[in-house]
């Protein structure tokens, strides 16, 4: 039985609507550190298409040492990224701000100690949701929210949000790599990344 659908079948079979414009946000790729596997400092997902926008969801089950997470695109580890992260730690009505320039990844949370909202990154599990412009000819600007576990019902968590960019105009994003910000800590087994996207209109 053929898996291929002929043009006439596409018209006759109402289930077959692969018209690009009718599709929702499609999954483009993903990667996960298998349960039981050793921790990793990097996790790369290739994309099966390079769409106008991409949406990234990250589940990190924890880190081997205090650190934060970052994203690299197309394997580019040159100093071609900036990020701006704000955090409000539990009990503080204010936010603390960290702007980092000429980075080797887009870092997804603040990692500065000594501020009002002192935050070293921690080792706990975290979840992050972000989206990036993936238009040819301009930088790849994005934004994200992150939450991090405290492992205690008696300890409220911090609030995180940020923006950042991969300042490479000549490429569209074809792969996404999740990295630890310092490159030393490893991400625990079960950590994963999944990427969705959509072309306009």
């Amino acid at each position: 039985m053929s898996e291929f659908v002929t043009p006439s079948k596409q018209i006759l079979d109402p289930r077959v609507d692969l018209n690009k414009q009718a599709r929702g946000i499609e999954r483009l790729g993903g990667a996960k550190i298998p349960l039981g596997a050793p921790g990793q400092t990097q996790l790369t997902a290739g994309l099966r298409a390079s769409t106008d926008i991409i949406i990234v969801q990250i589940r990190c089950t924890g880190l081997s040492a205090v650190d934060t997470l970052g994203l690299r695109f197309n394997g580019d580890s040159s100093a071609s990224y900036w990020n701006h992260n704000d955090v409000s730690t539990a009990g503080n009505a204010t936010f603390s701000n960290e702007n980092e320039i000429s980075q080797t990844s887009v870092r997804l949370a603040i990692t500065v100690t000594g501020l009002t909202n002192n935050d070293d990154g921690g080792t706990q599990a975290r979840f992050c949701f972000g989206w990036f412009n993936n238009t040819a000819g301009v930088e790849k600007i994005g934004q994200w929210f992150q939450c991090r576990a405290t492992n205690s019902i008696a300890t409220p968590g911090n609030l995180y949000f940020g923006t950042g960019s991969w300042v490479k105009t000549g490429q569209r994003i074809t792969s996404v790599t999740l990295v630890t910000g310092g490159g030393v800590a490893t991400m625990n087994a079960g950590t994963g990344i999944t990427i969705f996207g959509k072309d306009y209109p």
Binding site: W82, Q143, T163, V167
Partner: peptide
């Protein structure tokens, strides 16, 4: 809504908008 806006430079961090 939220917005992220580029700076066209890896040496300049951008603003946050909500």
């Amino acid at each position: 809504w939220t917005q992220a806006r580029g700076t066209a430079s890896a040496a300049t961090a951008g603003k946050l908008f909500i």
